[in-house]
Design a protein around this nucleic acid. Sequence first.
RNA 1: GACGGAAGUCCUUGC
Length: 280
Amino acid sequence: VCTYTALVYGFCRENLWSEAFQCLNKMKADGCNPNVRTYTTIIKFLCNHGKVDESLCILEHMKMSGCCPDLVTYNIVLRELCLQDKLVQICELFRVMNKEGLSPDPYSHAALAGGMLKRGKAKIAIAVLVDIISRGCSVDTVLYNIYFHTLCCLNRSREALSMVMSMVELGFKPTNVSYNTILKGICTEENIYNAMELFGHFDRLRDGPDLVSFNTILSTACKQRHHNMICRILFQMEYNGFGLDVVSYTCLVQYYCSIGNFPQCLKFLKSMLSDGLSPT
RNA sequence: GACGGAAGUCCUUGC
């Protein structure tokens, strides 16, 4: 079963749908019944391509075959439904989950709040998150990160920052994502200088900034055309042993192009290619 | 039967 599932995964990854389904049928013919993970693999790829109706069909199909979806399966479908803002089907899914004795976990709640956030419904997202937390549901780091992100979207980055700080005192372990989220918030809501100051504290806060942290301030510096700042950041990156990636190069190329410095623009394009990176 | 393992789920940066 593991082998077949891996095969199904491979077909899905290469967008070879018919092969994936053939594989599914072949398994059954071989007397090797697909299990939850096999079905979930297919459902996930369907969802990732926005084919949520098809994934609901598979969901029905697996139930008919006597294979019960678990929380992981439902969370994947839920996530896509939330991204597409299909309210009626979201409610229906929660109802079914409840009926089958599955209670939402932090992944489910992350799907819900994260989906709304991506749809630009930060106000609703924050209300949902506050409700989840106040109901005493378990909240993991990712869900907190979504909470911080939501606060930042509502121009409440400082609040998010002080919240992280006080939570650290209580033993909460933030991740790079937590800090990078707030760093981005400070960049857009305040200014690059305040962001740089926060950035400077990163070293002591945890293992130090990562490439995303650097890209966050680099993109801000580029957008605001702070030439000195860009140089400082590039120097810092080199000093800390971070190579530029596609995101960094894109920022720089756009910047130099926008100020009409085409030689620099070309220089970065060339070094990007020589780094083995291709423009997306 | 218990525990563990596994092929499936989340969040941040450019366009």
